[in-house]
Design a protein around this nucleic acid. Structure first.
Lengths: 245, 245
DNA sequence: CCTTTTATAGTCACAGTGACTCTTAAGGAG
DNA sequence: CTCCTTAAGAGTCACTGTGACTATAAAAGG
């Protein structure tokens, strides 16, 4: 199955080199649905297919730096947005034949962003678009697997971290925050109970002093909050049932 | 800070190649203390220093395969043990200067094992030994960081998974299982409460039918259990306070 | 005006847990 | 043998957090 090991005198330069790439699963909640940022590939292999944004790590870059650079290049999102977004290493994908061209190891990242302006293509990407998660077509390489892993991870992290605020604009209502949970988990949550839980967890959110209003829709205007200082949720906010959807 | 990006016409082979390695943080509980499997390096750089076991990923190997191979080579642990152990990808370390020789990206794994026979060196490792976690000297490369990350991750995973059984032999007592939690978390747990929690969580452990005894120490002999079918813990078993030790 | 919609307040019962006590079954010392 | 120590295992009680649910407040639209 593999080349026999040569423990002593092993010189990695003697072998065909590895390339290292980053891939990004950028998620957002838009109109009550989970969306993913995808790019349409402009080159072979998989030219024309949709893929996660990403690309090669440069010789003097860390993978995290490369992730932000590639995201900016391929999607044209504003620099301030790219610099400030929550980026988290997900997993590294190393199957020998995952890229038909050569041996490529890819470090995948997950990013959570509030609803953002439409991106534009750039670099290797012919086009960049937000697609609803459940309308995503088969993706290039093993990106379907990466995306599924990212979704599972984000769902789990909502339970025991304050990460949901990363999906919201700087100031948000508890209704918007609840929508994040409902969208990612795919289950409706009880409004009063959700409110109680969030407000009694120290550091999850803090009230914004200004006029307790904001709207455009009907119903009583909601108070505004911003993310608090806490990052972990103790005790966690468990999703109903053991469902992993 | 980095070489300027060259979005189009980028050929990764034109650059100095990356090497890809795996590093393993193998943890066990021995005599009530957390231990780490370390090897003493036989070659430069860091010759003579302690390091996590690991090595280069071969051209036709996945990182997971490489991890098991390197572990077997460098520690001489029995094949059956290496084949059966719980191995989990931790994180990938990509800082450009983490290895003084060349650009090396390392995929780190965490493994949890029951108390095992003393390993022996082999391959690049002059010696292999179990060292108590809090007596670990400064390690080669960025292995201190990897080890600390592994420890934090394992501590967190004990809360919401059944992973603790991976530290135990196939049949174990609830006292041994509790010792795993106490050792990794560094806090004493209430015996009856721990017992109640474990036994009422479906699929965490299942009783072994045989004679409800085993011993060598004093005290009432404990019933034996083996790991159940569950992997997740709902609801989780939270450690006292929000301590992350 | 009434209806609809959403936010916010409050109630009640129950499950899970922390803190604790008590009993049982071994080994060791005398 | 008896008594002491040690650890397993059974059981109690009070409190916290949560799920389910009801009620009120404040907006928009007919």
């Amino acid at each position: 199955m593999t080349t026999p090991p040569r423990p002593e005198g092993y010189d990695p330069r003697a072998f065909e080199p590895f390339a290292v790439t980053v891939d990004l699963a950028v998620l957002t909640v838009r109109a009550g649905r989970l969306h993913v940022l995808l790019v349409q590939r402009g080159q072979e292999p998989y030219a024309g297919a949709w893929a996660l944004p990403g690309g090669f790590v440069l010789p003097r870059e860390s993978a995290g730096t490369a992730a932000r650079r590639e995201l900016a290049e391929e999607t044209g999102l504003p620099d301030a947005v790219v610099a400030g977004l929550h980026l988290e290493q997900l997993r590294t994908y190393t199957e020998p034949d995952r890229d038909p061209r050569m041996r490529v190891v890819s470090v995948a990242y997950t990013a959570l962003v509030p609803d953002l302006p439409e991106p534009r293509g750039g670099g290797d990407a012919a086009e960049a678009r937000w697609l609803p998660y459940d309308e995503v077509p088969p993706l290039a390489f093993d990106h379907d697997v990466i995306l599924a892993d990212a979704r599972r991870r984000v769902g789990a992290k909502l339970e025991y971290t304050c990460l949901a605020t990363a999906f919201c604009p700087p100031e948000f209502t508890l209704g918007e925050l609840r929508e994040v949970y409902e969208t990612v988990w795919g289950v409706p949550l009880d409004r009063p109970n959700f409110r109680r839980k969030v407000l009694t967890t120290p550091g999850f959110v803090e009230p914004v002093e200004g006029p307790p209003r904001l709207t455009g829709g009907r119903g009583k205007p909601a108070a505004l909050y911003r993310a608090g200082g806490a990052t972990a949720l103790h005790p966690p906010l468990l999703r109903p049932e053991g469902r992993s959807a």
